[in-house]
Design a protein around this nucleic acid. Structure first.
Lengths: 225, 225
DNA sequence: CCAGTCTTGGACCGGCGGTCCAACTCTGTC
DNA sequence: GACAGAGTTGGACCGCCGGTCCAAGACTGG
């Protein structure tokens, strides 16, 4: 019931969906997923809420658009005509590196399977698998497996980056895990395996997983149905 | 600054962490992840908020405890001494079926890598992979890949169940995806592959992914490092 | 120059997670 | 059996969130 404050001077540069998404990505990068509030977006753009809702449906759509803004260019850049196995590796690494730079994308991709970014990943993966000679049910199974792995690893990595920004917490977790493994079996092999767990490099491990799936997909038969 | 209402009669049955977690699972199952509010939990237990915070740190811990309450028994039930490959399949299917019954678990597992439920999955997976003769770096790579795949597929499936409870929306999405694939290549093989995508069974596809992983892990060499 | 349309910004709403503390109950002690 | 201290309980309260609404202002075609 207050009488509104006198109007502040109006912005000179026009608001647009692109500018809003841009600001969203910037906020997510600097303040993290929890730092993204529509209030932060309006503040960043020096505007009010109504203006934003005029260009964007809601926060979910904003997140999906931001993820697409990050993933889209990565996929486009990776569309080369190299050997399919290498192309899949490049594709996966591109996604991994994008998430390394923007951890919130890892969370977002797992949240909503119908969003454009995920659809683009599916399409890209499917195309490469097909070039490997896989088709029919085998293609949809292999695509599903690879996409699930990539998104799962992305979410894990992103959550790790979010929750333990300090290496110490992370190290303690890995050591706890290694200890539990080691306790399961006195075999010295297990002991060294457990030690390996605590010393791995995330990016290499991610790529090793991609290789496992590629090997699994190409080992048994030639696909087909 | 109101004077408080006269006290309602005090509860007779004692409040406990178990009862709170139980109520949380019940609410998550019936009302979904968005339906879980601490207010709903207090209402369900006919109590106030302070009482709950006396037994539980915060909502995140409550979610983690609920997930452990679902996943723990599944893993325990699957600890048999069968052949490792079969054990991995059983393990994975157990998790899948649990998430089919409690979709919110799929989301929760991806949210927080340090939570007990995830640690338990890691340990179980590691044990079976070791029985397959894998060790050293290969073990930690394979374990990471399998856990990422299972959690990734779980999150995808859970998100799908949450977002398109009606089969129609889901079908439209799959058809759109299939159409995009089909457009990439006039090859009739692609056409049939795309068709396969729209007709798959989630559970079978999930298991197919596990098999691809197992094939990949056991194909190259015997592990070790 | 003016009338009609579209954009803008901020007040407002219901509801959330979390804190705090007075009232109450329970338990051990004499 | 009475009582005092410790521990539990419930609800008022706080700051903040996403989303709605609409009057004030800016822009555009005639």
């Amino acid at each position: 019931m207050n009488t509104p404050d006198p109007r502040s001077p109006r912005r000179t540069d026009a608001l647009s969906r692109e500018r809003i998404v841009e600001a969203t990505i910037e906020i997510l990068d600097t303040a993290g997923e929890n730092g993204l509030t529509l209030r932060a977006v309006t503040a960043h753009l020096s505007t009010g809420r109504g203006a934003i809702y005029h260009h964007v449906i809601n926060k979910d759509e904003l997140l999906a658009a931001a993820a697409e803004g990050v993933i889209g260019p990565v996929l486009a850049r990776t569309a080369g005509d190299t050997e399919p196995r290498a192309a899949i590796r490049t594709l996966a690494l591109g996604i991994f590196d994008a998430i390394d730079r923007h951890p919130w994308v890892g969370t977002q991709l797992s949240r909503e399977p119908l969003q454009p970014a995920v659809r683009q990943i599916w399409t890209a993966v499917g195309a490469q698998l097909h070039r490997l000679g896989i088709s029919g049910t085998a293609l949809s199974d292999a695509g599903s497996a690879l996409v699930s792995y990539v998104l799962g690893a992305a979410a894990q990595y992103a959550a790790g980056a979010r929750r333990s920004p300090d290496a110490a917490t992370r190290q303690r977790y890995l050591e706890h895990l290694a200890e539990q493994w080691a306790r399961l079996d006195p075999d010295p092999l297990v002991q060294t395996s457990a030690a390996a767990l605590a010393e791995h490099d995330d990016r290499e491990q991610f790529l090793a997983g991609v290789d496992i799936f590629i090997a699994g997909v190409t080992s048994g038969d030639s696909g087909g149905d």
